[in-house]
């Protein structure tokens, strides 16, 4: 079976598994669950799997997508439960299906974030954050392929909403997944560079949903 796609969650302790290690972990999971992945031809055969948009270590996700191929036909309905049982804590397969759309059509991501402030008041931070992200342009310096460069991250943010959550500030945003890719870690980084007095002491993110360029759900 070719053109297969998994949608899975990566939460809890599994968020610290790096992209490369995750590929290895999933491969072993397939093997343990008794599914034979299709391998590439050639001198150094490797399983034909690819995960769209590698997550950064520490970021959780409820909507990871992985394309894969199997040597034999299997019942896709029972695959999620069987594979989940063969995976470490925190990785949960939500569905397996034959895909029609290429991962390149994926355009927007919905993310949830938590900004933690140890000593500062969440309500006033929340207000200041709204103001900061209401700007038309937010230029920051970041590492690019050609060394350090200036980038405006604002166009890559389609929506961003902040709310007070106890002592923290919560945020929900729709950001560009590719072309350009906006790593959510840049949201607090921008504050550290441009307005450090409202930068959080710690920030963490969860990917919630994937969309195409028309903001239709991408599967």
């Amino acid at each position: 079976m070719d053109k297969l796609r998994l949608r899975f969650k990566k939460t809890g302790r599994a968020v610290y598994i790096s992209h490369l290690d995750l590929m290895q972990t999933l491969q072993r999971g397939f093997f343990r669950a008794g599914y034979a992945l299709k391998y590439s031809e050639g001198f150094n055969p490797h399983p034909l799997i690819s995960i769209a948009l590698p997550l950064s270590v520490g970021t959780a996700s409820e909507c990871e997508l992985m394309d894969f191929r199997l040597k034999e036909d299997v019942d896709l309905a029972e695959l999620p439960a069987r594979l989940t049982a063969a995976l470490p804590e925190g990785i949960e397969i939500l569905e397996a299906y034959e895909f029609t759309r290429k991962a390149a059509e994926l355009k927007w991501l919905r993310v949830r974030g938590v900004f933690e402030y140890d000593e500062r008041d969440a309500a006033s931070m929340c207000e200041a954050l709204r103001e900061f992200y209401a700007r038309e342009s937010i230029v920051i310096t970041k590492k690019t392929k050609r060394g350090m460069g200036e980038t405006d991250i604002r166009p890559a943010i389609r929506e961003i909403v902040f709310s007070v959550e106890g002592r923290d500030v919560g945020l929900e945003a729709v950001i560009s997944a590719q072309e350009p890719t906006l790593n959510p870690d840049l949201l607090p980084d921008a504050l550290r560079q441009r307005q450090p007095e409202i930068a959080p002491d710690f920030a963490k993110f969860t990917r919630l949903e994937t969309y195409d360029k028309e903001m239709e759900l991408f599967r």
């Binding site: 302790r13 610290y16 972990t25 072993r28 520490g58 804590e89 925190g90």
Partner: peptide
């Protein structure tokens, strides 16, 4: 998130 190879400090393995 700040240390090298954090997965070795979390447990949760299969």
């Amino acid at each position: 998130p700040r240390v090298q190879k954090p997965a070795r400090y979390t447990g949760g393995e299969y």
